[in-house]
Design a protein around this nucleic acid. Structure first.
Length: 467
DNA sequence: GGTGTCGTTATCATC
DNA sequence: GATGATCCACGACACC
């Protein structure tokens, strides 16, 4: 088959991509964190390219738009799996679709997605090893053991060791998670370009992959099999990174953006993702199909969170200005109605259940953090918090710590505000001279009390620890 | 009510 | 230290 004819514009962009890839290789994305952290000043300076000319453009952002949003009637021919003829793919700043730049549908070998200069073999083998080890121990101890956390967090003891700072991906981090492992302190982060980076906290190596073409909207490390990691993306795809098979498999492909990804505890068979304008899609892995497609909100759903005590109860937050709780047992009814609706004055960026499942915390663009408690979450408290992040910083989302006492949320002065649910106020701010940007996305380690990861729009991850 | 435009915000590489 | 590029979040506003 003859190669597609390219316009000057497309040739220029391909050349940019090639230069970009060369730069990433020379940068040694598989880099030494020590090089970053040994600097006398803040670590953000460390990603600069020494004697390298940076390409002007990054990998193009492929945006999917639904037929509905483009005012086109539904396609009667169904999904066209030939990427080169997929008219739903638009390249930003490009007036026409480009055959060479559209995303790959189907599985991508990890070796093709890898962006590091050195081999990722050690990373792959260690992840497979630790996954098997964790799984065997779990089987020995009786499966699905719920790990009880003795929570005795002293906020004052939380500190930021410069060794625990790394730039994991280029550009803005949109999602970041700890591996749900008791002994492994591994962080995985996704950025706006569709990259996924891995960092073993404290170690030197960072491993970067490029499985998606647009902002990463969800990362799910399977708790009972750490070598399987689901990712969702604005490009409309859900992928499964299977480290044993060494591929990024394609699970789901949509014309709509996917804004969030979630899964109930101990329920590996189903995936829930926020699709398009207010939709919640339920994907059943056993049959490889959607089992439900629910229209829950007027506009995009930003987060999906399951109640830790009841996997049938889920909370959604939406840009329509509400957070809602839902009972999925009623999913068969003609129209699912919310158990409760929590109305805010502006869009709601997150709604998370507390570790006990007894409270719900929302973060909204109306500059509040809402805390709901009581048997039916009827008791409402609003704590003022400046959530005006603008377009360059990922929106703030207050997360719970290791019990129902505290919430952690970034602030515009490069600190981490700690909100006490008892005092109903911000009681402390974690700060450090080592922080060079605003930490906007957070995750609390599942078993290590006091280990909190914060991610920035510059690709850095900061790990606070408690002594 | 729907659509389009614009202002706001921070980070980082380059000069 | 100053400057320019970034660009898919959101809300205000104008216009139809």
């Amino acid at each position: 088959m003859a190669p597609p004819k390219l316009t000057d514009y497309e040739r220029e962009r391909l050349e940019n991509i090639r230069r970009n890839n060369e730069m990433m290789a020379k940068l040694k994305v598989h880099s030494k964190v020590s090089e970053l952290s040994n600097r006398p000043k803040v670590v953000t300076k460390s990603y600069s390219v020494k004697s390298e000319k940076k390409p002007k453009t990054e990998t193009p952002v492929v945006i999917r738009r639904s037929l509905r949003t483009r005012g086109i009637p539904p396609d009667s021919k169904g999904l066209d799996l030939d990427a080169t003829s997929d008219s739903n793919l638009l390249i930003r700043n490009s007036p026409q679709k480009s055959d060479s730049l559209v995303q790959t549908l189907g599985p991508i070998p990890m070796k093709d997605a890898y962006r590091g200069a050195d081999s990722d073999r050690s990373f792959i083998e260690s992840l497979v090893d630790v996954s098997n080890k964790d799984f065997s121990e779990e089987k020995l101890n009786g499966s699905v053991k719920k790990r009880k956390i003795e929570c005795s967090l002293k906020l004052e003891s939380m500190s930021l060791d410069p060794e625990n700072i790394a730039r994991i991906v280029p550009g803005r981090i949109t999602q970041m998670k700890f591996f749900p492992s008791n002994d492994r302190k591994m962080v995985v982060a996704g950025n706006k370009f569709g990259d996924i980076g891995f960092w073993n906290v404290g170690e030197n190596d960072v491993f970067l992959y490029h499985p998606h073409q647009a902002p990463i909207s969800g990362i799910l490390v399977q708790p009972h099999c750490l070598s399987k990691i689901y990712t969702s993306c604005y490009d409309g795809l859900v992928r499964l990174m299977d480290v044993e098979k060494e591929i990024f498999d394609m699970v789901y492909n949509s014309d709509n953006c996917i804004y969030a990804l979630s899964q109930p505890k101990n329920e590996a068979n189903c995936l829930y993702f926020a699709e398009g304008s207010g939709g919640l899609t339920v994907w059943d892995n056993r049959i490889g199909k959607c089992s439900s497609n629910l229209d829950l909100h007027e506009t995009r759903i930003n987060t999906i969170d399951f109640n830790p005590q009841s996997s049938q109860i889920v909370a959604t937050s939406s840009s329509d200005g509400t957070a809602c709780t839902w009972d999925l047992r009623c999913i068969g009814e003609s129209k699912l109605t919310a158990l409760r609706t929590f109305a805010r004055k502006r869009s709601v960026q997150s709604a998370y259940f507390s570790p006990s499942g007894c409270s719900l915390a929302t973060t909204s663009m109306d500059n509040t953090i809402g805390i709901y408690s009581g048997v039916h979450l009827e008791d409402e408290t609003s704590v003022y918090h400046d959530n005006q992040t603008g377009r360059w910083i990922s929106t703030f989302r207050a997360i719970w710590g290791w019990d129902d006492s505290y919430l952690f949320v970034g602030n515009m002065k490069r600190g981490v505000d700690v909100v006490s649910t008892v005092q109903r106020a911000t009681v402390m701010t974690l700060q450090s001279p080592h922080i060079s940007a605003i930490p906007c996305r957070f995750d609390a380690h599942s078993s290590e009390v006091g280990m909190l990861a914060g991610a920035t729009s510059g690709g850095q991850v900061y790990i606070w620890t408690s002594s």
